[in-house]
Design a protein around this nucleic acid. Structure first.
Lengths: 191, 191
DNA sequence: GTCTATATAATGATAGAC
DNA sequence: GTCTATCATTATATAGAC
């Protein structure tokens, strides 16, 4: 089998399992079963479990970049772009109810483990924050664009956490509506 | 040594370690070292690791009840009582920056592990929600007391998550101010 | 009630055949 | 590049002496 293909499969499976079960709870055995590769061959592609984590985070960073770039090109205004961000709560609703936010839960776990890759994972949050902050600054809110971006990130995180704990479908929709309503006043000062 | 005393010491140590490192990452060895009791004797008090978790959650439920009852008796108005809740973010700021919210992170971990005790841990959230909901209903917001309580819970969770990831002292203060400001309009409709 | 010694299973990781 | 066999370590958990 092609080297890079197997490597990609491993990263894929690890990404899913880390999200669904957490990093520490996921074992090499579980990943190798899913990829249908023996545990031994595994170490040809990754020398340590941390190396897989590094690759998974790198992958998520790239995916986030791609998604933000898409929103940037597709959204016709900063307001619409920010609404794209808010709506991922709806798009990924089922997974969020089951496993929480992939960014937030990975970061929380790595912070508790005081894991060397925690700074690496934090970068995913920083990506979202920089992008959101940029959108808000375009809404003539330069003075508090950072704060508004952090505020929106925090609310999304809280919604994802409670949604996974209470497992309530309507709750996410209700809070997403509330987020859209919160955003509206900021959009009026644009033109 | 007294039976119940050792038992209490074990629950205490486990409570701290589960908070600081997570449930799964914490081993019997670590707990026994902290309590200064041999691993063997450990099983005299708790038969399985899950039994310790059950005891820890039970302990947290009791502590939460006590705290909410105190706020109930000390706060002179529903508004002041809700502000007591908001201010735990300030009171526990250092720990939250290091380890996140003890309620949220435990629940998130148990959800990912699909652990049998997850329903048990969820009850801690339910306690806070019921109490907050009660306060809001006293502010003549019966129609949306539940929603306001969930909203406040979610924002607290999001703040705790981001505070632990970004490790920024001023951020918590800033968002707490924002929470107090958010609450104010609801308090005017009281008398 | 506390200890030491031990059983058992799973983990991350390595060596070497093919 | 993939495999089987194996190692060292750690984990939860048990048995039995004191």
């Amino acid at each position: 089998m092609n080297k890079n293909l197997t490597r990609e499969k491993i990263i894929n499976a690890a990404d899913d399992l880390f999200y669904q079960q957490g990093f520490e709870h996921t074992s090499f055995s579980q990943i190798s079963v899913q990829v249908k590769v023996s545990r031994g061959n595994f170490y040809y592609h990754f020398k340590t479990k941390n190396d897989i984590l590094t690759a998974v985070i790198e992958r998520r960073l790239k995916n986030t970049s791609t998604m933000l770039a898409q929103w940037q090109s597709q959204g016709q205004s900063p307001t619409e772009r920010i609404r794209s961000f808010i709506n991922i709560l709806i798009l990924n609703r089922e997974k969020i109810q089951k496993f929480g936010c992939p960014v937030g839960t990975l970061n929380s776990e790595l912070v508790k483990l005081n894991h060397p890759s925690k700074e690496n994972a934090k970068e995913i949050f920083t990506q979202f924050h920089a992008w959101l902050s940029h959108q808000f600054s375009q809404l003539k809110h330069n003075h508090d664009a950072d704060i508004l971006a952090m505020h929106l990130l925090a609310r999304s995180q809280g919604i994802a956490t409670l949604a996974s704990v209470f497992n309530d479908k309507n709750y996410i929709k209700q809070e997403v509506d509330s987020l859209h309503a919160w955003l509206t006043p900021y959009t009026n000062s644009l033109y």
